[in-house]
């Protein structure tokens, strides 16, 4: 994020310079015409993007809000029902459960991925043999699509025929463990699968941050006789602040959108113990055909994410100053 601010400043300077080239004096009439023309050209460049953006991104979101105020299935006449859908939320046990599930996953996955990603990055950044190969090996799972990743993990974790239980059996564990059938184990399974899948990507982000730290700082610390721990605590960690912020934001947004892992691994079960909000939205919208209520739940998800984003902004970005 530090890099981001710097770039933005550079960019502003650049465009300020550019402004001078374009319109030395705004009062001049000829120049004003030119500025109008420049406006038109700029909009011509932005037009294809803006058209698609407004049509496919903004419009569905706004439309979703109006849908959330109605009842009725897709394609049928909608009946305006005011805030009924939102009132219904308050007493919907399944909604509260899935809201909690999503928040729970954000809370357990974000720190785990940040910490493990950083540890892996520190190791593959050390001057050891074979780290280039390792970087690729750790990154590879990120290239898999969610359903492939989930299928692989189901095969690893399922009881009786699963790979993990087969290995445990050979190690002398006689009890059959239901990794996906027990509430706590199911969450651990989803977390581990997610970790396996995304760790490499986050490792690479941290790696980039690590390689941006100048050697000289470590050399100076060596001269002062600093311990490895002191170097990590006083040089590495502060320098990584920007990357940590980036990873935390990216990861928490990704975790809020959790859908594929539980949908494909546990089906949201046992019961609805691992059903996240996005899965609930999907089920309401496309299985129960209740777009109004599904939209209302979508807006709650949006609200929760906005609150989280505001908290993160206060905690992470502002501090950096």
């Amino acid at each position: 994020m530090g890099a981001l601010n710097r770039e933005q400043k550079d960019m502003e300077e650049q465009s300020a310079k550019h402004k001078v080239v374009h319109y030395p004096q705004k009062k001049n009439k000829v120049k004003r015409n030119e500025s109008l023309k420049s406006n038109a050209i700029a909009w011509a460049f932005l037009f294809p993007f803006m058209l698609l953006y407004v049509w496919f991104m903004l419009y569905p979101i706004i439309q979703g809000f109006f849908t959330s105020l109605t009842t009725g299935s897709f394609g049928m006449a909608r009946e305006f029902s005011g805030l009924d859908n939102y009132v219904r939320l308050l007493s919907d046990q399944a909604f509260w459960q899935s809201l909690w599930n999503t928040v729970y996953f954000v809370l357990i996955s974000t720190p785990t991925i940040v910490i493990f990603g950083l540890i892996l990055a520190l190791i593959v950044n050390a001057k050891l043999k074979g780290t280039t190969f390792l970087r690729s090996a750790f990154f590879m799972p990120y290239m898999l699509s969610i359903s492939v990743m989930a299928s692989i993990w189901v095969f690893i974790l399922q009881p009786y025929t699963g790979f993990l239980n087969a290995i445990l059996g050979q190690l002398g564990v006689s009890e059959e463990i239901f990794w996906l059938g027990n509430e706590h184990l199911a969450w651990i399974s989803i977390l581990v699968a997610t970790l396996w899948w995304t760790l490499g990507f986050n490792m690479v982000l941290f790696l980039a941050g690590l390689q941006d730290i100048s050697e000289e700082m470590y050399e100076a610390a060596d001269i002062d006789g600093a311990s490895a721990w002191a170097k990590f605590w006083h040089i590495t960690l502060p320098s990584l602040k920007g990357v940590v912020t980036l990873v935390v934001i990216l990861q928490s947004v990704a975790s809020f959108k959790l859908f594929g892992q539980p949908w494909l691994m546990t089906g949201g079960g046992p019961g609805d113990a691992t059903r996240p909000l996005v899965q609930y939205i999907y089920e309401l919208g496309f299985i129960q055909w209740d777009p109004g209520y599904a939209s209302a739940v979508s807006y709650v998800l949006f609200g929760v994410m906005a609150i989280f984003a505001a908290i993160q902004y206060k905690l992470l970005v502002k501090k950096e100053g």
Binding site: W55, F56, P60, V253, V278, G285, F286, S298, F302
Partner: peptide
């Protein structure tokens, strides 16, 4: 920062 899922229902209807 807004996830695409927010507009999923509206996107389908569109």
């Amino acid at each position: 920062m807004v996830p695409g899922q927010l507009g999923l229902i509206g996107f389908y209807e569109l």
